[in-house]
Design a protein around this nucleic acid. Structure first.
Lengths: 292, 292
DNA sequence: TCTCTCCCATGCAGAAATGCATTCGACGCG
DNA sequence: CGCGTCGAATGCATTTCTGCATGGGAGAGA
């Protein structure tokens, strides 16, 4: 048995198709299929049922998943440990974050990094997917939720109050909403991360009626941009709203949950030089904002 | 990083040389060296220091061992689980035991197996090395010591008393030893498994003087054969001595520790058909002996 | 000191794996 | 019902890997 085929096995299981796995692994679809066939030959067992819409695990394949993931943890650990002792200021650092924070903080940090450490490159992945740091899908994550794993180190970089804002233009046209009548006669913009069904909706603690919502977005950058474009009223972290010169509605009201920003990295990467300096520069991005 | 290279890494570490690893892995020494070089390139770290007498782990390499072994456990688990659900009476079963038991019990069992299940082949490894069942180096072990791992199933097949014996020829020439004078004027044959320095030596509880020992062997088969050849007096399990028609000395004396025989297999292989029938046949070998 | 043995490194030819291009089938949409 | 899209399989050229053979170096023993 070729141990490397287990890596292919896990990729196929996660993607559901050979083609998807080939994209994730960066190798050809034909190769993925042949590697799987090789594993099945070595183990003398069919692991997937081939369907026109992809592959599904057989019972035999299902039994292997736990052991395969154990192998994967070992492999990840190997890479981290070797990486964790790398004192050189060169190589690639993978950062995952949201588009808001990527645009406003990580990219400025990358500019400064480029000056100081020209041999370090940053691979920035902005997505709503939460990449798995334990699985080594990224080196640094900047998130609005704290992680749960004991292997991950989280540091809260800032905690922004969330205020209610509209664009200058919107206020000029529609005026400010009257407090206490559920935003009657106003247009609202909402952040809805998961495209979930309507839950109990509020803005800065005030209940809203669904019919007044003119737009939602899965990204806070889109929400901010919508508000800036005059589409309606919505919640924005105060420092970002000020940067955009939005007009604050009801300045004494903030949302009860602030906008927390966590920087998360893996315990084993703590002392990796190139990762440390990237973290340092990103942290500096946030402290500049808080200071100014 | 090619996961399969960790398999090579572990083999090199265990054997200490590329050549040794290549023998264990069944691939060429040059390939082993190149696979290691590939792993070191992928991880960008030297894992071994090359010396003329083999390779020694660097600090970086040492750190990887634990994670690599975790991968190995996962790989072994995969193979066992797939093997463990194999209901076909065909394929190879690897048995490890001592030469005594291999000769007297496993080989007769193999003869009967051949008749009943012609598609099953047995790979018999007789050595004093205790192969690691957890590491999948063998499927069945027949040993004189019980294993410690919770993943292994041990069943005591028999417990033979150890008596003192000489050949008919020896007794005719030298007579039987007088009890109580430390085998004065007699030649002794000893089983010494580990080539250890002289410890406190006894035969069936009687102290002996080192100068009377004419031969030792690391194998109980060799001891028995030596005794049969008339070299001296020594301990032999009673059923085996009777089979050899040896003459018993002091028939009321036995060694305090009997000769226990354990059959050991891995928990996951319990229900593998071909392994079950091999076990069954080996057990039958021993019960024939006890019965007759 | 010479030789023998053990080891690793490297050149080269053959074998195996990979990527590309194409074919084929299934599904969903207009 | 045709068309476009998605996916898996397969033929073929190329790259990569592997095994064999050889060379060179270090250490043990005569």
């Amino acid at each position: 048995m070729n141990w490397d085929d287990t890596r292919i096995f896990l990729a196929i299981r996660r993607e559901g198709t050979l083609r998807g796995a080939s994209r994730r692994l960066g190798i050809d679809q034909a190769t993925v299929g042949r590697r799987l066939a090789g594993l099945e030959r070595a183990l003398d067992a069919k692991l997937f049922l081939r369907g026109s819409d992809g592959l599904t695990l057989t019972e035999a394949g299902d039994r292997l998943v736990v052991a395969a993931e154990r192998m994967e943890r070992g492999a990840d650990e190997i890479e981290r440990q070797v990486l964790g002792s790398d004192a050189r200021l060169q190589g690639s650092v993978r950062v995952t974050t949201t588009d808001t924070l990527g645009l406003g903080f990580v990219i400025p940090a990358m500019g400064r990094l480029r000056q100081k450490y020209p041999a370090i490159s940053v691979a920035l992945s902005t997505s709503t997917d939460i990449l798995n740091l334990v699985r080594r899908e990224a080196d640094i994550a900047i998130r609005t939720v704290a992680p749960e794993s004991p292997d991950l180190l989280a540091r809260r970089m800032t905690s922004w109050p969330m205020g209610l804002y509209a664009s200058r233009d919107y206020v000029a046209r529609r005026g400010e909403p009257v407090f206490g009548n559920a935003f009657a006669d106003h247009d609202l913009v909402l952040y809805q991360p998961h495209l979930t069904t309507d839950r109990h909706l509020t803005l800065v603690g005030e209940a809203i009626t669904a019919s007044r919502v003119v737009a939602t977005a899965t990204s806070s950058l889109m929400v901010r941009t919508m508000i800036g474009a005059g589409l309606g009223i919505g919640e924005v972290p105060v420092p970002l709203a000020e940067r955009d010169r939005l007009v604050r509605i009801w300045p004494d009201r903030i949302r009860s949950e602030p906008y927390d920003i966590w920087l998360v990295t893996h315990r084993d990467l703590r002392h990796t030089a190139r990762i440390s300096v990237v973290i340092e520069e990103i942290v500096s991005s946030f402290s500049r904002e808080d200071g100014g």
